[in-house]
Design a protein around this nucleic acid. Sequence first.
DNA 1: GGCTAATCGAGACGGTACGTCCCGTCTTTAG
DNA 2: CTAAAGACGGGACGTACCGTCTCGATTAGCC
Lengths: 193, 193, 193, 193
Amino acid sequence: MSEHRQGPVRSEAARMDVLHATARLFAERGYDQLTVEGVAAEARVGKQTIYRWWSSKSALVADCLLEGLLLPGSFIPRDTGDILVDVQSWLDEIFQVLGEPSGQSLMLSLLAAAAENGDVGRQLRASLGASSILSARFRAAVESSNLRADAPLDEIVQALVGTMIFRTLSRSEIEPHTSERLARAVLGEWVRA
Amino acid sequence: MSEHRQGPVRSEAARMDVLHATARLFAERGYDQLTVEGVAAEARVGKQTIYRWWSSKSALVADCLLEGLLLPGSFIPRDTGDILVDVQSWLDEIFQVLGEPSGQSLMLSLLAAAAENGDVGRQLRASLGASSILSARFRAAVESSNLRADAPLDEIVQALVGTMIFRTLSRSEIEPHTSERLARAVLGEWVRA
Amino acid sequence: MSEHRQGPVRSEAARMDVLHATARLFAERGYDQLTVEGVAAEARVGKQTIYRWWSSKSALVADCLLEGLLLPGSFIPRDTGDILVDVQSWLDEIFQVLGEPSGQSLMLSLLAAAAENGDVGRQLRASLGASSILSARFRAAVESSNLRADAPLDEIVQALVGTMIFRTLSRSEIEPHTSERLARAVLGEWVRA
Amino acid sequence: MSEHRQGPVRSEAARMDVLHATARLFAERGYDQLTVEGVAAEARVGKQTIYRWWSSKSALVADCLLEGLLLPGSFIPRDTGDILVDVQSWLDEIFQVLGEPSGQSLMLSLLAAAAENGDVGRQLRASLGASSILSARFRAAVESSNLRADAPLDEIVQALVGTMIFRTLSRSEIEPHTSERLARAVLGEWVRA
DNA sequence: GGCTAATCGAGACGGTACGTCCCGTCTTTAG
DNA sequence: CTAAAGACGGGACGTACCGTCTCGATTAGCC
């Protein structure tokens, strides 16, 4: 009854080879040095096998992101009971990574990919935005009355992540107390003693 | 005694032709469709004339940004005396522009250029960050005691601009009351009745 | 005792579909535009079905030639009793066909195929050379004493056919009286009053 | 007054590098193994430099032929005073070369190129046809009354060369006395004691 | 009737070469 | 010495086919 397709089926091995090669080269050389030809060579795969399933190099990157091959295991915010402190140390950790050249250039590459390709952008939102671990921490804080129930959680997350992105793009140096000021600026209003 | 140079000096006409051509093509086709060859043709200029004075296409874009050829005349926040209201309407205006395809893709192209080239990024900070008109409005609000004197102005500006950038990159739809919630999230703490 | 095979035997339908598709595409587009993939599609046959039975596209063409699908029904020389006249009008007919673009390009394609593949070349010899209808006419002329018994028939046929091939390859225009001069040049010696 | 073009002029060095590389690869590997990419690599030249000046690989071959880089110094017929003998030994020499695999495959490659590209074909005619050294020998024979004045020289040359081509394409073995029979078949009529 | 093996269509696979676009450098002529 | 024009060596693009392989369905002979 069902619709049957004849012929060979997509090779999962080839698919993963391509994605791993993409991730490897992306991390090594960055987004704009990434080439489809290079990925094909690294993955020992025909170029056509890439173009058959992905429309462009940015689609490759989006898919890698989806498979979790690009971002290191998310930064998990601590839970000391004090949301302000936890967000501060979360920001510190991130600024730490973005302070290193490799961390910075990985982020810039991701942003370049996101600027070029909507799927990468949306994927990035999924990783860093409302559905992220940070969001979960905020919801927990609301639960435990550490945050006011009417706090605009999405906007707060976006403001924090957006600041990181803006600072990365604008190559801002990290000054002392940045995390503290930022956390207080955005969260201060909504924290309960 | 002094160092004399023979021959004609740099042609200002050629310089502006190049920058205008860059701006035109950037706006029309976006950053990654922009090519040095295309700019040279559009400006009716030899390629070498471009490479003599600029190091890459991203340097061209950075220079255009500096000359104010890319961003439409800055959004000037109103001054009704109520900073919260003024920031809200400023955000509304911006979200309006970013809601249109042309505004969105101009912004995405700028972000792509900034991700690729530090000068563009720093230039972007100069246009949108601490030295921006929005910052000036905040300082005025502090002056008039509409904002607390200890408000972390830079962080606030970064949070607002960063949110815009994050939402653009992640292709977020603009929902009603976004501006209101965002302004309150970030400014609430620091506004004085 | 004998070697037995199980399973279905070669499909004659598929075989003819392939050969007809080859002949059609060969005539339409010429030899070097001919592709195995195109033949498979035109014949609605899997590529493997072609590769199972033929080793290359030139083998396909050789087979078509063998089946008589490429050359239009051979040019049959008249028999007026005067071999010189008959050869002349045979040459006229052929030069006529080779004068038209379609005839010329069919011939050129055949020559390309023959240059690439020995089987095609040998097949061409079988069609045009010693075993051809022209040869038969010569033998008849010898029989009826219209040609000397010691006439080197093979060399004469080769000289006539070879001239046609050379003129085709070199894109020579056909001038008036060519047939007459050629027939006399090659045959004159051997004709008997 | 005259039309001046600015800018660099075609590089003669690059031109000759390309042609020599083409000739080398053509002789080594034959026409259908010849690739534009391979020529570019061998000549250490950008592909675009080839495509800028030649339309296809067959145009490269035609140009090589024109520059005399493909055919070994023409076979020069002897002049013993007896045209029949001289043509015979000329044919022997050629059949000798075409008997060797390398000579045969060079010829087949040339024929393939000629079948594909009219310029190659016309060039081949210039090298082997009416303007050839063989033709000159025939004219000398007419001069010295060794050949009848009304002998159709062009047709005779074409018949001889055409036979060689046909025999090459059809992979005919060379039998003893072929040259003799062929020379007599085509020339017999016109030779004077 | 069930089993085995070869056929068929379709088409994914690793590759090679295509012809084009653009890079950044170099070369030429004009002013 | 600058400028335009544009040829140069090079690298990547996205496409077309190559010849091999894998898949599910079908079909012919054998037990």
